[in-house]
Write a protein that binds this DNA or RNA. Structure first.
Lengths: 196, 196
DNA sequence: AACTGGCCTTGACCTGTATCAGGAAATATA
DNA sequence: TATATTTCCTGATACAGGTCAAGGCCAGTT
């Protein structure tokens, strides 16, 4: 039950609309709580991402394995974020990504079909969806720009400035992969940074 | 008037909803046609992106100038796309980008305030907006992944596979910048590719 | 027809970042 | 407590892609 309180807060905060008790009951009826242990997979390459999971507690990485067997982290998710490959989720196509728990996870899961059937009439949820898509589009746009035109060090500085909590929460090899760097390079950048 | 026909087709195609004559009149009343010549700016760094412009004809680049004076192209836009920095447009914050015409442009312009006042009740427009945000979020997600984990050659191959018309339409130095490469490197990649 | 400026290529060289190898410190597991 | 395992650092070396410099080609202008 306290699972859902965090979720309700999130919807209300993002949408700016208060949920009625009736509306809350609709969420309770159709969002399915689920737990995953550290290292368990939420999604694997080739699968269709049938569910989106709201993260109540814990964290996860979305990543791809390249031809040489190297892992590239595209996204790090924690409380008040969603676990899903939205491309696969909306289009029901096989995903190119893996999503794996970095810490034990508590999720609230739902399918896109359920969203369309049960939540299409709840204003707060509609607005929330719009805000999420908009924010995600903008965040990714900025990340493209950073990836294409910033040096490794600039990207790290950017992370320190904008997502300092990532550094407390995730090991440095995970951060390195998220920044598109080898762990060695990140280590050297940090060594330099601490000097100046 | 034929300006608007292309726009109406676009809305109807993206939303899957036919526009009534009354609805079309609302668009005619509030979207403002505008022309820009090649090399003219639609937006400059530091400005607020007050207008979004639907591209009826022509093309443009969205780019940033780095500390060393180098240009990095974030986005290339042509017919049936929008000209705007959405971050600045939605939040009314100063933009970090420049948008400049690569060819003579014919646009239909609108402010976010107008959208909220006049188009918030037109279902086709609402659905269109959702689809745009969703597609843009997904496209940017894939581009982040490409920028962080693909080699220069893989990124070029990706472009050839997914956006072959870009190559016909834009000079190679523009393509190079869009891929995050120097023109010299792109030239060498193409030379190799044509061999095999 | 000559001139100009933008576009593209090529070669030589340089630099940032990856890779490989080893090891220390911290953390989990027995 | 002992033993793996993971995390992080450091040094040596390799390589992808950037930078600099030069020249050719083509379209537009005079």
């Amino acid at each position: 039950m306290s699972n859902f309180d965090a979720f309700f807060d999130y919807i209300q905060k993002l949408s700016g609309i208060i949920l009625s008790e009736d509306e809350k009951r609709v969420f309770l009826a159709h969002f399915k709580p689920r737990k995953l242990l550290k290292r368990q997979y939420f999604l694997q390459e080739g699968d269709v991402c049938k569910y989106a999971g709201f993260v109540v507690k814990g964290s996860a990485k979305t990543f791809r394995i390249d031809d040489k067997g190297h892992e590239h982290i595209l996204k790090l998710s924690m409380e008040d974020w969603w676990l899903a490959d939205f491309e696969s989720y909306y289009h029901l196509t096989p995903t190119r990504y893996n999503i794996q728990a970095l810490e034990d996870l508590e999720l609230l899961m739902v399918t896109n079909a359920q969203v369309e059937e049960f939540f299409a009439t709840i204003p707060a949820f509609i607005v929330m969806q719009e805000v999420i898509k908009q924010n995600y589009a903008i965040a990714n746009q900025n990340r493209v720009q950073a990836a294409l035109s910033y040096t490794a060090e600039e990207r790290y500085d950017d992370l320190v400035a904008n997502y300092p909590h990532f550094l407390q929460r995730f090991p440095l090899n995970v951060i390195a992969s998220y920044l598109g760097l080898s762990p060695e390079t990140l280590s050297r950048i940090r060594k330099n940074a601490s000097k100046s």
